[in-house]
């Protein structure tokens, strides 16, 4: 018996099991090469060939932060053209740079928020967030009076608000001045801009989600599936680092509506808030409202002990 098995094992026999593996590998490579094939396929329509060519160029483009001015312009035009080729509609993708001597900050008035969720709704529309998965950057937590324990608060309430005996407090990306999410990214796909906004290059992100694990504020969202926004609901005024359409498998987040804030406007949530609970402005401008709040109100920040230095303060009347 000793060596039935050994005998069998040592019996020579030429057969290559690995052939199946090779077959599978070829199948995978074929999928990957599909876009190239389409680009050079003489029978494909000119539009689909152009789209394939642009996708190919987009695939090999540099990290946005390291692009030259020309490369940036090219990347922006490419996105506009791609959208036109694929969906017919026109979008404008801005690459507006940070404004000198501006550092954005945000304050949230806990006394004023009443849980109407106008901010959440405006944010989703403004930022072209995936409608299918119900993604939202902002969470409004309904706390019972006398408690300040987030684990006991609800952020999925759907009863008339404000509910008796409750107060409301919103969280979103706090645009930490010392952001842990930026440190951990293995490919420098996320960084803090000079105006303090923490952004993601959706074309550079590899989707490892290390930043999501590193964020203590649940600020980051992942596209678990291809995001969907009906063409009619699409906000065509986009920014490369902001609300342009993301693809499947990348991380996104609040950008203080970079497409608006770099244009001198307030983020959509600030504009939509019916109670004036949200205050936004330039921390470097001593005349700004945000500076007045910081100077005249008793403010606090969440999880300050983690050393993240958020640019998002809470205060009460």
């Amino acid at each position: 018996m000793k060596n039935g098995l050994v005998q069998i094992l040592s019996q020579p026999m030429d057969r290559r099991t690995a052939i199946t593996v090779a077959g599978c590998a070829v199948a995978g490579a074929a999928t990957a090469a599909a876009s190239v094939a389409n680009a050079i396929n003489p029978f494909a329509s000119p539009e689909s060939r152009e789209a394939s060519r642009l996708e190919w160029q987009r695939y090999f483009q540099e990290n946005y932060r390291l692009m030259s001015e020309e490369e940036k312009t090219e990347a922006l035009l490419r996105l506009e053209r791609l959208h036109q080729l694929k969906h017919g509609g026109r979008i404008s993708v801005s690459g507006a740079e940070p404004i000198e001597k501006v550092l954005f900050g945000y304050a949230f008035n806990v006394s004023k928020c009443r849980g109407y969720l106008e901010c959440v709704s405006a944010c989703i529309r403004e930022n072209n967030q995936d409608r299918a998965s119900g993604m939202a950057y902002i969470r409004i937590h309904e706390h019972r009076n006398g408690e300040f324990d987030f684990s006991k608060a609800s952020d999925t309430f759907d009863h008339p608000v404000p509910a008796e005996g409750h107060f409301y407090l919103g969280t979103q990306c706090f645009h930490c001045q010392n952001p842990p999410c930026v440190d951990v990214c293995p490919v420098k796909a996320t960084w803090m801009e000079p105006d303090g906004i923490v952004v993601v290059d959706y074309d550079w992100c590899i989707g490892c989600r290390y930043c999501m694990a590193a964020c203590p504020y649940d600020a980051r969202r992942f596209n678990w599936q291809a995001p969907e926004v009906p063409e009619a609901d699409l906000n065509p005024n986009q920014h490369y680092l902001g609300n342009r359409m993301r693809q499947k498998g990348v991380v996104e987040k609040c950008t203080f509506c970079i497409q608006r804030s770099r244009d001198g406007r307030n983020p959509a949530c600030v504009e939509a808030c019916p109670t004036g609970a949200r205050i936004f402005g330039n921390l470097l401008d001593p005349q700004s409202e945000i500076r007045w709040v910081l100077a005249n109100k008793k403010v606090f920040r969440l999880k300050e002990d983690l050393g993240t230095d958020p640019k998002f303060w809470y205060f009460m009347d």
């Binding site: 608006r260 406007r265 004036g276 005249n296 009347d317």
Partner: peptide, 19 residues
């Protein structure tokens, strides 16, 4: 108090953007 907050920017809303 509301008047003071409003004048400073902690109460109410502004009709314009931050800039």
């Amino acid at each position: 108090r509301q008047q003071k907050d409003w004048a400073g920017g902690a109460h109410g809303k502004r009709a314009t953007g931050w800039a």
